[in-house]
Write a protein that binds this DNA or RNA. Sequence first.
DNA 1: GTCCAGGGGA
DNA 2: TCCCCTGGAC
Length: 224
Amino acid sequence: MSFLSNYLVTIIQQRLHNHFGPLNWWPADSPFEVIVGAILTQNTAWTNVEQAIHNLKQADVLSPEKLAKLPVNQLEELIRPSGFFRQKAARLQNLAIHLTEEWQNNLDDFCSGPLVAARQRLLALSGIGPETADSILLYAAGRPSFVVDAYTRRIFKRVGLLKGQESYDEIRQMFMQNLPEEVQLYNEYHAQIVQLAKTCCRKVKTFCSDCPLKGVCHHANPSI
DNA sequence: GTCCAGGGGA
DNA sequence: TCCCCTGGAC
């Protein structure tokens, strides 16, 4: 990996941290709630997910045992605000049944072992792709697996570090090969990326003049 | 009222 | 490539 990638990946994290301060993700009361949130937030704004999780708490079904037993049409109604509610209800229930039947609801065991193996175990489940798997590993299990999302792609393409055709795993490797393997660093970095994407580095209406990456990013100043 | 943002599967 | 869906912005 080039010196330039290493320099940019590192300095961007520092800039974002200085600008936003520590963000202390993931906002949840338990590891299982993180897992549920990771599935519900697929292709969905977090505000919609909050309502769905609120509904699950109100109904007192936010545990693998209860989600496994809940009639799926009831689950669909509870999570409806998060969108794509039919597929997400099936995904959640499938995961809850898997955890209950194969892992005795022991999330530590489920996410333990070599990182590659734990990641494969997650990816084998229906409805868990790379981003959801890495979110669960990082934010529910506290394991050093960098999360890549649409925001990461957008920001680092604008910065000039990505062309746009890279695969998920290539981008993940770019971060992991250029950063020390620290859970807290991965945790904060992804949170900072999301924060930047929601404030300055939005999809269409950008606010480059307010951006903490001014001077580093091609988008704000194509002459760099 | 229309549009927009946003992962995974087939 | 297309389908799955919502709340919020405009």
